[in-house]
Design a protein around this nucleic acid. Sequence first.
DNA 1: TTTGATAACGAACAAAATGTTTGATATTAT
DNA 2: ATAATATCAAACATTTTGTTCGTTATCAAA
Lengths: 188, 188
Amino acid sequence: MDRRQQKTRNAIFQAFNRLLEEKHFNNITVQEILNEANIGRSTFYSHFETKDELLKEMCTDIFDHVFSHELHSETSHDFSLSDHGLREKITHLLYHLKDNKGNVLGVLSGESGELFMRYFKEYLITMFEQYPDCIKKEVPREFALNHLVGSLAEAVKWWIENRMQMLPEELADNYLRLIGYGIVEASL
Amino acid sequence: MDRRQQKTRNAIFQAFNRLLEEKHFNNITVQEILNEANIGRSTFYSHFETKDELLKEMCTDIFDHVFSHELHSETSHDFSLSDHGLREKITHLLYHLKDNKGNVLGVLSGESGELFMRYFKEYLITMFEQYPDCIKKEVPREFALNHLVGSLAEAVKWWIENRMQMLPEELADNYLRLIGYGIVEASL
DNA sequence: TTTGATAACGAACAAAATGTTTGATATTAT
DNA sequence: ATAATATCAAACATTTTGTTCGTTATCAAA
């Protein structure tokens, strides 16, 4: 991909993100994006078919980055990243969200978080499936899994909307306490 | 309000709900609603300013019904409804959702559940605040409250999307187990 | 550093969706 | 029965979307 393309793509993403912080997705016109990004109309449509596509690609971009630490073991953070602990995994994930250059605030806050959340949950499902012992046995598996995923997504959303004040480690700990997982270390 | 107005209002709601079951909110045009509801264009706009307003009013209508059992003590369900137990409250709420004539499926399923969920959570917050003892003390209050509300909303959404197969009592029990509240009865 | 390829531009256009206005028709409340 | 008013349908103005195309600017590679 040409350097020019990357540049305008980023410009669009950033402009869109800025707009999302103050307006609902539905009330943002393509024209506004063009103005905010200083981009030609035809250029926009050569990149994205629709506004929905734009949002979708923005989400996948973010998550591809956030969940990519499995693959290319980038040691950008001071983790020894032996990925066996759920706590470590969540913390890691939060750090990735935090320093994600395209700030997530816009996508999530305001009003248009739905699509973002759906993507997020898809990733989280696969994550939790690697930790079968945190899925409680007393309730139907699907229900329990949905609970874990849903509440973590909600927690992260809350965290982001509160400007990520809590430390990733704190949030992970608090979350694990609430789902009754922190006790495991103590009781097992 | 005139009988005619009620009628068309309902027709619009139902048409919209039907459409929501198969298409995303954003991809539904006003024209489609008019066709589905057999309604004139100007009539629609005399009822609702925008499509968003329509959705919003539909949500408030539903919740006004679902959460109204506090006020007018309608004994439509076989509860003695002494409203002190959280379990009973949740069960009650689920029953109301279940037999809500305007079926909730459309509003929630498909893709446009976001607004619905936001309204829902607002109501749930006030509900949980009446049960301080289920808000865990080991974590920040706001975080804990967000967890309770978010995960209940997610659970209900899951329930509705799965065609409400689980019994309200079951769902309430399962949920309380997951948030570690069911134990209270045993331990207190 | 020149050159061939291509991305961005912007203006003009076509198409689609959103709202508004109108006067005629039908329904309701009293 | 009548006055009030909600619905209708069609025409209209407006906004937003998406496309086309010739020109200009930028990049990658020789």
